[in-house]
């Protein structure tokens, strides 16, 4: 992991929904090229955090910078360099895989000559080369998820936010997906911010993880750091799941 520039810089970020704090005072930094796992149970505030990063919802207080841009004031600059895979991503089911990707490419102002080549490459990389001209409506859950990854990469982003990229996949599909994310991130030097509530699954590809609970970031660092420094445990003996349980007990 290089100690390069920061792609995400959040300070005291808070989002309230009618008095309820979905995200409470979040301060977090993501470095260039790293894979960051944002973990926590459902309702912890992971999606809300991503929405604030993208300028899709306004923070109640606090600031975020994405590669130096403010999502509230410069949303287009942010969206140019950020890929976002929403939870349970949707497609235009009556268009084929290539058409879906081309549409997103055009929305990013990428000329068809250029996107054509990228589409070929990306579909190959996510293992959908043979399904280029199939209607997305016929795709399985796993194929859709992989197409979603390809779609976030078409604009050649600096950072991608993947919201629950492994949700609904079987163990084999999950592992394939994670390997794919890891290799794409390494190959292209893209920072990945991925959320999950399945902790032991994603930990193996994450450089660092942050743990969310009830809107609060209760721990952040490498698995080792979290285990040793914060809890005094030997990392090799404990899974993330157990660290997590410990945190909850401490939090209560």
């Amino acid at each position: 992991m290089d100690e390069g520039k920061l792609v995400v810089e959040a300070k005291n970020l808070t989002k309230e929904y009618k008095g309820f704090k979905a995200v409470d005072n979040l301060t977090l930094e993501i470095k260039e090229g790293e894979i960051f796992g944002f973990l926590g149970p459902n309702g912890a505030g992971k999606t809300t955090t991503i929405l604030m990063f993208l300028g899709l919802t306004e923070p109640t207080s606090g600031t975020v910078r994405i590669c130096g841009f403010d999502p509230v004031k410069e949303p287009l600059d942010v969206k140019k360099i950020v890929g976002y895979l929403p939870e349970n991503v949707g497609f235009y089911d009556d268009m084929n895989a290539a058409q879906n990707l081309r549409y997103v490419a055009r929305l990013n102002g990428i000329p068809d000559e250029i996107s054509e080549k990228r589409i070929e490459e990306l579909l190959l990389e996510v293992g959908l080369a043979g399904d280029k001209n199939k209607k997305v409506g016929t795709f399985s859950k796993g194929m859709r998820q992989r197409l979603g990854i390809a779609e976030t990469l078409i604009k050649e982003p600096k950072v991608v936010f993947l919201d629950e990229p492994t949700i609904g996949l079987d163990p084999e599909g999950t592992n394939q997906m994670l390997d794919m994310i890891k290799s794409l991130s390494t190959k292209k030097g893209i920072a990945v911010f991925l959320t999950s509530h399945l902790l032991d699954q994603v930990q193996r590809i994450c450089d660092r993880v942050g743990i969310m609970y009830n809107g609060n970031l209760i721990g952040v660092g490498t698995i080792d750091e979290l285990a040793k420094e914060k809890l005094g445990l030997g990392a090799e003996k404990f899974t993330l799941e157990e660290i997590y349980m410990k945190f909850f007990k401490q939090g209560e």
């Binding site: 899709l56 969206k79 976002y84 991503v89 949707g90 089911d93 929305l107 990013n108 102002g109 604009k155």
Partner: peptide, 14 residues
Amino acid sequence: ISRTLSKLVSQPIY
């Protein structure tokens, strides 16, 4: 409903 809106609004368009 087709969950394409969140994708659309996350592209660099007004």
